[in-house]
Design a protein around this nucleic acid. Sequence first.
DNA 1: AATGAATGAGCTTTCATTCAT
DNA 2: TATGAATGAAAGCTCATTCAT
Lengths: 215, 215, 215, 215
Amino acid sequence: MTETQPARRRRRKEARPQELTAAALSLFVEKGFAATRLDDIAERAGVSKGTLYLYFDSKDALFKAVIQEGVVPALHAGEALLEQHDDPLELLRAILSGWWERIGSTELGGIPKLMMSEAGNFPDVAAYYQREVIQRGTALLRAAVSRGIARGVFREVDLDAICSVLIAPLVYRAMWRYSFGPRCGQEADVGPYLKTYFDLILNGLMAPVAAGDTQ
Amino acid sequence: MTETQPARRRRRKEARPQELTAAALSLFVEKGFAATRLDDIAERAGVSKGTLYLYFDSKDALFKAVIQEGVVPALHAGEALLEQHDDPLELLRAILSGWWERIGSTELGGIPKLMMSEAGNFPDVAAYYQREVIQRGTALLRAAVSRGIARGVFREVDLDAICSVLIAPLVYRAMWRYSFGPRCGQEADVGPYLKTYFDLILNGLMAPVAAGDTQ
Amino acid sequence: MTETQPARRRRRKEARPQELTAAALSLFVEKGFAATRLDDIAERAGVSKGTLYLYFDSKDALFKAVIQEGVVPALHAGEALLEQHDDPLELLRAILSGWWERIGSTELGGIPKLMMSEAGNFPDVAAYYQREVIQRGTALLRAAVSRGIARGVFREVDLDAICSVLIAPLVYRAMWRYSFGPRCGQEADVGPYLKTYFDLILNGLMAPVAAGDTQ
Amino acid sequence: MTETQPARRRRRKEARPQELTAAALSLFVEKGFAATRLDDIAERAGVSKGTLYLYFDSKDALFKAVIQEGVVPALHAGEALLEQHDDPLELLRAILSGWWERIGSTELGGIPKLMMSEAGNFPDVAAYYQREVIQRGTALLRAAVSRGIARGVFREVDLDAICSVLIAPLVYRAMWRYSFGPRCGQEADVGPYLKTYFDLILNGLMAPVAAGDTQ
DNA sequence: AATGAATGAGCTTTCATTCAT
DNA sequence: TATGAATGAAAGCTCATTCAT
């Protein structure tokens, strides 16, 4: 028992920053960066206000840490899908539903909302986000779609544009959870939304069956 | 000379509130509500800080006015379309491209971003917005889609879900203009986005042509 | 009576900065810069804490203003003495007793103490002070002494060194008033100090009367 | 090996408090008491912040220790001079140059600056300092001067006043080292200053040679 | 004896709000 | 109507002090 004490403490010490960014993320998403007080973050994390400054130089630095920490882990998972799926349709489905499961439906889903709200106030973080998240995500989608087009499964579409159009309903839905969501009981009911979404875009992408095709 | 003064003044006086909300809207959208100082709004509007209090009781009241003013004018325009178009496909296109032209592409396009960011801090305004904007807009879309289904032009889809999915890419694009947009030169290039968007959704909605159809 | 109101206000407005620096000076000298709270300054000046920020950007800026304002007015008075006195001995006496009357014995006498205490924390202000106050003051003394030597009234001495040595007892005494002074009742008794000081230095500077001089 | 450890440790332990006060002294002198953080002191002393509290109850207690430790050793050295010198002029010279060598030119020279800056914030320490340092130093000087007057070597002067006047240039110069000194390269050049100082005061004190004196 | 993570009171600074003019 | 000087509550941040290890 006396042995667990230091162990607990050490574990605590190492886990602290993530406990703090987790608390900060939820409040930033809920109220916005400027409207969130450090006291609130500290309270939610169960520490005192001063403790925040042991780990982060300033409120701004905390914001940056929140974004980076929420973004880094999801970077590789998606890119691995490219090799796991050959069929373009399956690949596209895997990417999009994977994003929803790993990001959109988790507490990380607040990050797009937060980043979009604060992009103007944190230009450097916004640049980082666009480079590391948006561009890499776009490249992933682009690879899937262009493979589909190459194989004649998807119709010819503007690659740049389609990527944004495809991801929009998912991001929008994730943002919704942290804005109007709380006032609707429909929260849990994402099923129909996703089903309809996939139905619409896959149908919309699919190349028309050639006249004489017997399929 | 003494006569023109009051005339100019009166016109000025009546226009004041809208000049103020316009200044407030652009700043709220750019920096967020909490991060925007009344000094900045006053400066952008070309008045003194005290003047704001002649027209609005508080910063919160100014926020509410900004939302209401940006929302009211667009309410009826859309609903009028229902009668102007008979063909469901044309109607749907008219509704969606109408939204983009009247809202999304104008300075009013910032309102969805603002409202989404601040929904948590202004529950009553959010409720108002949801009731007066989202639900009425949804009802409009719903009418168009269900008419299309009824006539066999559109496939059978979940009506509630499809409305959100359909509007998402447009709203998302509007929000983009006020977040990441300023850092991309692609700003002006909405054309391909819209084209691809309509291409995708209309194709995705369209009912499959029956085998023996001669079109 | 209704007329005096705006007048009083306008006068107030213009006089504010000096009321604030005066309050700040006395507290900075008494407690030191870091140990002085802005609340205390505001209270002593009879304003609220926020008012300080209408006139000064920060506590540091207030410090700089305190020094500059306390230094500027005394700059020219001394230099004018050079032309008013021809006799080197009278000139030297006029400079030194003039410093005491205009600076050392007034509330400005705290500035040397303050500047000396804080020189390390405000290198730029210290540089300004040294350039505008110390060097100009030294030049003045130097002119007086070198004139005395040229005329054979004073003995030959190191000009740089003598200037510092001469001013030291006066500055030291001024600083004393704001440190140990308050705990001695002797405060008022500067008379003997000055008398002894002048007696010592003038005697010490005087050239020995040549053997055959008939006085 | 296990034996040397405790030995080194013991020596270390006993030396600790002085290492700490030495670090504190240099920082207090450089930045002032309030502007010096305990972290800085600990870092300069090469210990952790908590260690300071093993030796001193509080920051205030550390300040008092710094003053006492810097003051005690010099107390007796000066008073011993009274018996070592008979000639008043030599005695006075020995006292003053002794002060410069033992205090003014060493790191203890910062103590007068520190004490003067903080006298208002530490009335009890100031009282102690005045009693144990200033008054005893003054008494020493007084003895030397009055012996000189009694023997007809020095002119008649106000004893209280002359003591302050005499020490002022030395203390002033010591304080200078820790304020404006760092910004002048002249630092090393105290020689001319001291030479001029002694030249001035001894000349100024000397009784005029009577007319018929054959010296 | 020594550490350094944690605390929270207290400080500087900001800004919505008021009000005399 | 319009102003802007003044306010003071509240926020970000610091740092002397404590204490479990």
